[in-house]
Computed example of a mutant assay.
Amino acid sequence: MTKYIFKRLIGMIPTMLIIITLSFFIVRIAPGGPFDGERALPEVVKRNIEAKYHMDEPLWQQYGRYLFDVIRGDLGPSYKYKDHDVNYLIFNSIPNSIILGCIAMAIALIFGVSFGIIAAVKQNSVLDYIPMGIAALGLSVPLFVVGPLLQYIFAMKLGWFPTSGWFSEGLGWKTIILPSIALSFAYYADIARLTRSSMLETLRSDYIRTAKAKGMRNSVIIFKHAMKGAMLPIVSYLGPAFAGIITGSIVVEQVFRVPGLGKFFVQSSFNRDYTLIVGVVIVYSAILIVMNFVVDVVYAQLDPRITYK
């Protein structure tokens, strides 16, 4: 296992190198630039700005300089946010995205696994149809509809929560609830459906029949025996889902005015802010790769039949 972990850690290096390389060249090949605007800059001014940021050098030389800076942990200056560099912008906003993502994932896991188990145990009953009906809504209704709907009902009509804002701005902990619920909705749907189908399959397996024949209580069979096997697909799903719930929070962050990384990702795309775009892609990719690695390790711990050589 230790050898496998070491190989996977080493394997992350070329993966990240490919991501950095592709991101660097794709944003520069695309038409437009960070200093293009409605009114063209004088040619002398534009040349001076490009010289300041080394953009007058050949592309391969710019890539080598940027790669060396990234290895040192420097994601470069922002071409639009002149007061701060990319490191400052990303690492002061990503904690908010991670907090939002972790709370949303916790909500999705708690309710998704709970209702998925209930739906499997009470198959073809009201306790099966209602959670799966809500899951179907979660899969079909997009976030830009769920967010404003929650704002309209719980903020504007009932007045229970603020319409937007974030607790770090001094607006209170209630600002976390609506965006977390909105973001968790689609992931609840996936987890509930996965849990139900996996639990149904596990409950029909031979070792569960043997446990029932021995006279074990249903609660012991479900939580001690069936649940461990049924959780394997959920664990596999959690790796990309956790990365996705952070990267996919862009819409929710915009709707609820959460000062997360999504704001900079959207604005940097419109502004053609090369270094900020690539910096955000690097951070998102690193989260995805690390979470997939963690899932593989946890998967082996849950299922002793799985070995990594």
Results as ranks from 00 to 15, higher is better:
residue 29 I to T: 13
residue 71 I to T: 03
residue 133 G to N: 02
residue 231 M to D: 01
residue 73 G to C: 06
residue 60 W to Y: 15
residue 141 V to N: 05
residue 221 I to Y: 01
residue 12 M to C: 06
residue 256 F to Y: 14
residue 262 G to I: 13
residue 77 P to W: 00
residue 129 Y to W: 12
residue 48 N to F: 00
residue 244 G to F: 13
residue 45 V to K: 11
residue 307 T to H: 13
residue 133 G to Y: 01
residue 8 R to Q: 04
residue 263 K to C: 00
residue 7 K to T: 06
residue 11 G to R: 08
residue 207 Y to V: 03
residue 271 N to R: 14
residue 245 I to A: 06
residue 56 D to W: 09
residue 173 W to I: 14
residue 152 Y to I: 04
residue 257 R to L: 11
residue 301 Q to T: 04
residue 272 R to Q: 11
residue 23 S to C: 14
residue 233 P to D: 10
residue 29 I to M: 15
residue 99 I to S: 00
residue 225 H to P: 00
residue 132 M to S: 12
residue 272 R to C: 05
residue 43 E to G: 04
residue 238 L to M: 14
residue 31 P to R: 06
residue 249 S to H: 10
residue 43 E to P: 02
residue 73 G to P: 03
residue 163 T to F: 10
residue 143 L to W: 01
residue 163 T to Q: 11
residue 104 A to M: 05
residue 140 S to Y: 04
residue 286 A to R: 01
residue 223 F to E: 05
residue 215 G to N: 11
residue 31 P to K: 10
residue 280 V to D: 03
residue 46 K to L: 15
residue 287 I to A: 13
residue 53 Y to V: 05
residue 139 L to V: 07
residue 286 A to H: 03
residue 197 S to R: 00
residue 19 I to N: 04
residue 201 E to H: 09
residue 224 K to P: 01
residue 215 G to C: 07
residue 125 S to M: 00
residue 274 Y to E: 08
residue 227 M to I: 06
residue 196 R to D: 03
residue 86 V to A: 02
residue 129 Y to M: 12
residue 55 M to R: 04
residue 183 L to H: 04
residue 28 R to C: 06
residue 306 I to A: 14
residue 220 V to C: 09
residue 152 Y to E: 04
residue 55 M to W: 06
residue 252 V to A: 01
residue 20 I to Q: 02
residue 206 D to S: 15
residue 70 V to A: 04
residue 263 K to V: 14
residue 288 L to P: 02
residue 295 V to Y: 05
residue 53 Y to S: 01
residue 180 S to I: 06
residue 181 I to Y: 04
residue 214 K to P: 08
residue 130 I to V: 15
residue 277 I to T: 01
residue 216 M to Y: 13
residue 184 S to P: 07
residue 98 I to N: 14
residue 58 P to C: 09
residue 151 Q to R: 13
residue 131 P to H: 13
residue 233 P to A: 11
residue 236 S to R: 03
residue 131 P to Q: 12
residue 229 G to N: 15
residue 42 P to Y: 12
residue 300 A to R: 09
residue 305 R to T: 06
residue 43 E to Q: 10
residue 105 M to N: 01
residue 67 L to I: 08
residue 257 R to I: 10
residue 183 L to V: 08
residue 89 L to F: 06
residue 10 I to A: 15
residue 169 E to T: 09
residue 20 I to C: 07
residue 293 F to E: 09
residue 291 M to E: 05
residue 279 G to M: 14
residue 158 L to Y: 05
residue 155 A to F: 08
residue 260 G to R: 13
residue 38 E to W: 11
residue 101 G to I: 02
